[in-house]
Design a protein around this nucleic acid. Sequence first.
DNA 1: GCGACAG
DNA 2: ATCTTGTCGC
Length: 227
Amino acid sequence: MIAPEKYQDLSPREAIAYQKELRALINLQELDKPIRYIAGADISFNKYEETVYAGIVILTYPDLIVIEEATAISSTTFPYLSGLLAFREIPALLEAFKKLKQLPDVMVLDGQGIAHERRLGIATHFGLLTDIPSIGSAKSRLHGLYEEPGSKPFDKTPLLSKQETLGFAFRSKAKCKPIFVSPGHKISLNQSVEIIKNCITKYRIPEPTRLAHLLVNRIRIEHKLKV
DNA sequence: GCGACAG
DNA sequence: ATCTTGTCGC
């Protein structure tokens, strides 16, 4: 295992080799425990700067009432490379995660779960490190082929890689582009979409990650003015 | 070599 | 991802 604090020092080829190792540990069994708390996690940053703002919001489920927020301001030198997003964002997310008083039963990350060339999207990677069930909810596709889902809310089509279903193109709202939902770790394909479905209220983006996104942008702006 | 490419 | 106001469509 590689300590997340050392991710910054990895070369892209070492990061890819690590993903191939972690792949063997993925568990896509049903989450049998009831869900009381769900979390959303996200990162924000200013272009050209190394500072990253991480945030996690905990909400009750299925009522979606916010009960806790944790943030961390950190810095990254690992560049954004398609397929290696986790190495750039996870260290800061873990810092925020450690500050939580109430651990969530499941976490939603902004990005892919197993809908990734090596099945190691950021949601899967984060789930493996924390041992918390996780789901990936991305605003665009990274890996896998799909047919455009129907136009009605909650219509969905499978995201396929060869014969394997990695997730779904999910129409969260009518007249909006679909989002891409895939299981991360310790949760099943169908449970992932079902849970995300229960987190859609008035917007295209599910509440956990939508609120986490608002949170990290808030702290980024305030930090930018203060310093 | 060409095209794809989460945030 | 972030930078940004108004504006077109339902």
